[in-house]
Design a protein around this nucleic acid. Sequence first.
DNA 1: GGCATGAGGCTAACGATGTTAGCCACTCAC
DNA 2: GTGAGTGGCTAACATCGTTAGCCTCATGCC
Lengths: 208, 208
Amino acid sequence: MADGRAADAGVADVGVAVGSAADVGVAVGSVADGTVPDRLTPRAREIATAARTLLEESGPAALTLRALADRLGIKAPSLYKHFPDKHAVEVELIAQMLEESAAALEAAEARAPGSVEALAEAYRTYAIDHPHLYCLATERPLPRAALPAGLEDRAAMPLMRVCGGDIDLARSVWAFAHGMVILEIHGRFPNDADLAAAWKRGLKAFHP
Amino acid sequence: MADGRAADAGVADVGVAVGSAADVGVAVGSVADGTVPDRLTPRAREIATAARTLLEESGPAALTLRALADRLGIKAPSLYKHFPDKHAVEVELIAQMLEESAAALEAAEARAPGSVEALAEAYRTYAIDHPHLYCLATERPLPRAALPAGLEDRAAMPLMRVCGGDIDLARSVWAFAHGMVILEIHGRFPNDADLAAAWKRGLKAFHP
DNA sequence: GGCATGAGGCTAACGATGTTAGCCACTCAC
DNA sequence: GTGAGTGGCTAACATCGTTAGCCTCATGCC
């Protein structure tokens, strides 16, 4: 057993992010100009953008510090002036994924309030459009302490609302959706499987 | 996008395993003595056993060719006399996982015919008892060509049967179960989450 | 003007990883 | 007895994340 398990918070749990802002590459960003406080230095954001392109275009194996540095026209060790280690870069990508999928779910909710189907469609679409990013953010314990406070909850709230606060229902719908998406991404279903039908069947089951 | 997607067969698809038995370390095993044909040479089986111990006790990062060789009292390059590469060792572990979980599901089915709950319980128990092995076998495209013929189908049949042949239902129940298990393994649920309740709620939803 | 400081590059190098090449010893069938 | 596996070995390579230590330049301060 050993690792593989992690701890704390999830759906409907208040995110207790206490990451120190004094870490390398982490700037609180001047709030004076009315801007939302940024997690990252401008240069660090460029690096994260390049990392994301690398990951999304070529998969996790291609996300190498040397390849990342190459793409930016610098050498690998220079990256350590902006991030403490590779994991920190990945954490930023995970935060991006959580934010974007939260936004996608909120948009779907606004478009069709109370519709599980709309939420599921948005969830699936986002994941399938960013398979490597989805896997990166999903197939390991959440680095909760390093994530913006409340982000995890924000991503979970639309589903919680549509489930009318039934947390067991919300968790099982989440598990179903994640299972469908991750099995599809990894090619576990037959090529010719009618996944739309499986989604429909599953969502029908969960219906009130 | 790029990789991350794979192909072919899944639930209820006939496994088309055509792996050549002439590969390094692969012995067909004398059938003369009435033994089931073995995938592996005796020494290769020892190596696989050590690899499994390493994986299950210390996680995927600890499954290193040098660590594996150490545990066997030999040097890393010697492993190549028995397996063509590290991936082949992992494939053997994946095959073990599929066989054992298939057996667990069959046993559950025999114990409580027609019960989705019994199947789900068996699935969850096996996965949680072998989290690293479950992840190894599950979080990447199935190496179908290198797996024993029919194994994938055997693992899927109990669920197919209990779903009365409704393939869409079988796929969504599978997605639900996999999602629950993998999210639990990765610590995505809150520490104090009542997962039994979530399982119950999900299975109730899928009930006829 | 002079200068300290910090930001952001660089090279060289380390240890760990998977993997290859090439060598050697032992067993055993003919 | 000998030739052919079988199953070890050492040395080495490329690549990975990472560290140490140096250099350059812009900026702000006296």
